[in-house]
Simulated assay, not measured.
Amino acid sequence: MSETGVITIRTERLVLRMPDIDDFAAYAGIMASPRSIGMGGPFDLRAAWGMFCHDIALWRLFGHGALMIDLAETGECVGQVGINHGPLFPEKELGWFVYEGHEGKGYATEAAFALRGWAFETLKLPSLVSYMAPGNAASVAVAERLGAHLDPVAPRTDPADLVYRHLAY
């Protein structure tokens, strides 16, 4: 994180940036939709707000958190990538989602690869995990494209979750 507490990561097609209040409406929308089932949802507005604030507070508490995924060419926000931690996460988790209509374009993989690289280099983490609901083929595919491997003995809060481990090389 920079001295100002703001981080931006750029890739070939994306800009990963700190969330701001203008991002909340789309975030609340995905959290209220059936697409959030794999994250424990759908969530009401109060829960979505708490999660959104958690994503931002993590930066102050742990030096990492969520970043919004913008298209570099247009500035359109297409999703979020983040490193989660705190009492709900047994280990630091690399997570991602993209908004409806932006799936299948490689944005989640590109963003997660960039944030994971930043985390390994800056935070000196030996590994990260990604938790996902069984049957979430899209997230499994992202984890596997990133080179993560299934870790059946990793701690998890939901015993049904699949856990993919990302190792720093």
Rank of each mutant, 00 (worst) to 15 (best):
L125S: 03
L125W: 04
P126I: 04
S127W: 13
S127I: 00
L128E: 12
L128M: 14
L128A: 04
V129D: 01
S130R: 07
S130K: 10
Y131A: 11
Y131H: 14
M132R: 14
M132Q: 11
A133M: 13
A133D: 04
A133E: 13
A133P: 00
A133S: 12
A133F: 09
A133H: 07
P134K: 05
P134C: 00
P134N: 03
P134H: 00
G135R: 05
N136E: 10
N136Y: 09
A137D: 06
A137R: 05
A137L: 06
A137S: 07
A137K: 04
A137N: 02
A138Q: 02
A138C: 00
A138M: 00
S139D: 12
S139V: 10
S139M: 09
S139I: 06
S139W: 15
S139E: 10
V140D: 03
V140T: 11
V140A: 15
V140Y: 02
V140G: 05
A141E: 00
A141D: 01
A141C: 03
A141M: 03
A141L: 01
V142K: 01
V142C: 02
V142R: 05
A143D: 09
A143E: 13
E144T: 12
E144Q: 14
E144C: 00
E144H: 01
E144M: 08
R145H: 13
R145K: 15
L146F: 10
L146M: 15
L146N: 07
G147D: 02
G147R: 08
G147L: 05
A148C: 10
A148S: 13
H149T: 06
H149F: 05
H149R: 06
L150M: 06
L150Q: 04
L150T: 01
L150D: 08
L150A: 13
D151R: 11
P152K: 06
V153D: 15
V153E: 14
A154H: 09
A154Y: 04
A154S: 02
A154G: 04
A154R: 04
P155V: 06
P155E: 13
R156W: 01
R156N: 05
R156D: 04
R156Y: 04
R156C: 02
T157F: 07
T157E: 14
T157W: 04
T157I: 12
T157P: 04
D158F: 09
D158I: 13
D158T: 13
D158V: 12
D158W: 09
P159W: 00
P159T: 04
A160F: 00
A160Y: 01
A160V: 01
D161N: 09
D161S: 10
D161K: 05
L162V: 12
L162W: 14
L162F: 15
L162A: 10
V163K: 12
V163D: 12
V163Y: 08
Y164F: 15
Y164C: 07
Y164V: 08
Y164R: 09
R165D: 11
R165E: 11
R165V: 06
R165N: 12
H166C: 15
H166A: 14
H166T: 14
L167Q: 15
L167G: 13
L167P: 11
A168Y: 07
A168I: 10
A168N: 15
